[in-house]
Design a protein around this nucleic acid. Structure first.
Lengths: 334, 334
DNA sequence: GTGAAAGCGCTAACAT
DNA sequence: ATGTTAGCGCTTTCAC
């Protein structure tokens, strides 16, 4: 900027004003300076500007990975969420700083905020770290979490309606005549626990008993579906349907069933979760619960910006939707 | 920092030194200051530090989207590349600033660099913007592009070996007895053009003619596979194999073939490209060309950091690998 | 309408 | 071993 000022024969102050389109500066001078700057490929240094203005238009997006499986950034659902967040932030003129951290050390998530790099944090994935998240919120770190609403929660969450998602999936299977519905998912994760509640609710609503033998605790790794089907075989329990807590789980489960000579949906109907892009292209096309990813991105960003402005924000639940495709079709096959 | 200094009864300089673990400060004083800072959740403001030190540990990752299709961030391959980059950068202690821009205005990609936010740019996706990329490089913007090596190229690329990828796929199909191999992809894109060259090479090596009727120009949208299969039907050309330039294209093509009553691989063998996570879980499991995503992330980051250090970096080609699965198996089915 | 000067939070000579 | 001071690149009173 000093260079520009020297070449243009004015002071730094004038250059600054010209570049910020201040009305205080002579139209002709302003145009001359702007032209000069652009010919020199000069742009205001945002770091210095931020320092002076104590402002910042960068939001931190943190994706925790499971220390054992390192799985998260390979999960198509979280990846598509990233895309939605990038879009939502770009649309509002904010930049996105992406970090990955160990899920066991969620407190590190606040680091980009503490060091002044970002104005707030969006955390994709709640895992089991409820307490640590509460501590961050108590420290007044502006943070919004994609996940489930929990009791005594100090931080803001945006999430799908997991209870209703679980109910929709299970009710659909019941209505198609299924009675022995297996549940695949780790209910230590809050979101999965809520889906399981929905599953139980739907069974109860149809006067069906919950058989704990039908619930298989598997993590969100791709092989989970295979493991779960094998576990059911080991237990020797009969089932005619599966509700899997992710599409990946559902797909690998179906592959394993097929290898075992069982037909989908004839022998076993399957409903997945998330409606990732490939669910529609899988064969047979996957029936699933859609999570509204684009809306989620918007909602997360909106909530965070409110928080940053010092306004309190209630946690939000986004509607989930049953997408009926071939693995659990409407008309029961004979 | 001034606060800490006041409370600790020392000067800002001492606090700065203590927090940077300088040996110049009394051990006891240092520990006292560090403890005080951490109890106050104080961390050095990186923006101010960067300004003073004229340093920066942030790298810009830019993902262009096609103005018409807006497709890129939904493409599983690019998304997984993002994950690999995030990992590679995190491992080296760099942060990642993610932006999406219109592919038609690639020059905007340099903005985070021009404004001093990042030390260099990694661009995922070369598209057709060869000239604009050359201009950026000519301006000495440190930039590394995931894509194909092109003649008169001033910028650095890291990419898969597309020619060899095309050859591997095509040769495999020929060796399994296929003679009429369709090619799905838009050869206006440099990477696809190279894959097509590999395809032609493989045909030539087996003394087979290249039939232009077998090449269908489709973009990387999911519906591309469907469109391409329909286009071949419209043309009325016979074929017994498909080499598709992405796994998504391959999958939707297979679905469309199936709807038309043609069997994969019996009637039509199919090889995809990328080896996205779901290729293995598709049914039938997809034969494909694997692009080494993790290595790509490492290579892109490594190359960029070299550039930033002022060293010249040659473009790199990463090996591609044929993954034989069910859609184009080793033993030809009768 | 424009310039001089102070200061955002930090570090590194240079003193002491 | 610690304090003083200047300055990174910018904006913004306050003078002129």
């Amino acid at each position: 900027m000093a260079d520009i000022a020297r070449i243009a024969g004015v002071s730094k102050a004038t250059v600054s004003r010209a570049l910020n389109r201040s009305v205080l500066v002579n139209q002709e001078t302003r145009e001359r300076i702007v032209a000069l700057a652009s010919s020199l490929n000069y742009t205001i240094n945002i770091g210095a500007q931020n320092l002076r203005l104590k402002q910042n238009r960068t939001v931190g997006v943190v994706v925790p990975f499971d220390s054992e499986t390192r799985q998260h950034l390979s999960d198509p659902f979280f990846l598509s969420m990233l895309g939605a967040l990038a879009d939502a932030l770009t649309a509002r003129g904010y930049d996105m700083l992406l970090s990955r951290i160990d899920a066991e050390q969620i407190d590190c998530a606040a680091q980009p905020f503490d060091t002044g790099r970002v104005i707030g944090i969006i955390l994709i994935g709640q895992w089991r770290q409820h307490e640590q998240l509460n501590q961050l919120a108590a420290r007044h770190v502006p943070i919004v979490v994609w996940g489930a609403q929990l009791p005594q929660q100090l931080y803001t969450t945006v999430g799908g309606d997991n209870v209703s998602g679980g109910m929709l999936a299970t009710a659909h299977l019941i209505e198609q005549g299924r009675r022995r519905i297996a549940f695949f998912g780790d209910i230590n994760l809050p979101e999965v626990a809520q889906r399981y509640r929905g599953y139980c609710n739907a069974l109860a609503a149809h006067a069906l008993a919950v058989d704990p033998q039908l619930r298989v605790s598997v993590s969100f790794i791709p092989e989970g579906g295979t493991q779960a089907v094998q576990e059911l075989a080991r237990r020797g329990v009969a089932y005619d349907a599966i509700f899997a807590c992710s599409d990946l789980l559902a797909m690998t489960a179906i592959n394993t069933l097929r290898d075992a000579g069982r037909h989908v949906p004839a022998d076993v109907a399957v409903v997945g979760y998330d409606d990732i892009a490939l669910a529609a292209y899988y064969h047979p096309a996957l029936s699933t619960i859609r999570q509204p990813v684009r809306a989620a991105g918007e909602a997360l960003v909106g909530a965070l910006l409110e928080l940053v402005d010092g306004r309190a924000v209630a946690s939000a639940q986004l509607p989930t939707e049953l997408i009926v495709r071939a693995t659990a079709p409407l008309k029961e096959l004979p």
